[in-house]
Design a protein around this nucleic acid. Sequence first.
DNA 1: CTGTATCCGTGTCGATACTG
DNA 2: CAGTATCGACACGGATACAG
Lengths: 102, 102
Amino acid sequence: MIVYALTQGKKRYVQLKQEIVGVSPKMLIQNLRNLERYGLVEREVYLSVPPRVEYSLTPLGASLMEPLAILGEWAYRHITDVKTAMEHYDRNPETSDYWQPK
Amino acid sequence: MIVYALTQGKKRYVQLKQEIVGVSPKMLIQNLRNLERYGLVEREVYLSVPPRVEYSLTPLGASLMEPLAILGEWAYRHITDVKTAMEHYDRNPETSDYWQPK
DNA sequence: CTGTATCCGTGTCGATACTG
DNA sequence: CAGTATCGACACGGATACAG
């Protein structure tokens, strides 16, 4: 989701926090740090008051955009299928023929 | 990796275990069960001695093949980039200008 | 052959409070 | 504004042993 949000260009910490709804500061930072570590995201600090930090995709990160978009498209189109599959899933030997089909 | 292995058609438990090198029975089963729960993989039991169980992709699972292949292709091409990025990564304030750029 | 059971270390994530 | 610190719950994964 971070990579996806950054496809639109540089974003500040607060912007990311607002766009990725429900994310805690901890998780956002944690994942930003990981993406940075992997060389997918770049962090730019501006020494000012108040502080400003901008995140952006590296070339490597940008190269991930398309594969990610394709996977995201799949997820978007099939999420309901997965949900209904999970609702109907039954592995209880008492109520399903999972273990001992007759 | 399971989905990828099953793109070539039905496979038995042992076949998967052999093709996915180093996987423990626990993890293989755990992930097979999850994929089943999500409706991506189908499990077929043949009551015989010795028992035979075949796993195959559902239509939903098959629809994931292409997105997954694209992502896999990206990973294969950029894995070395990520590795070198991780080697050079330095967040120590003493040795990097990460926190207080001069 | 096709799994299950158990122990155990580590990673992930939410929630909450706090800070330069 | 841009994070850090801490706690606790849970999932993941390896290792090993065992079972129908």
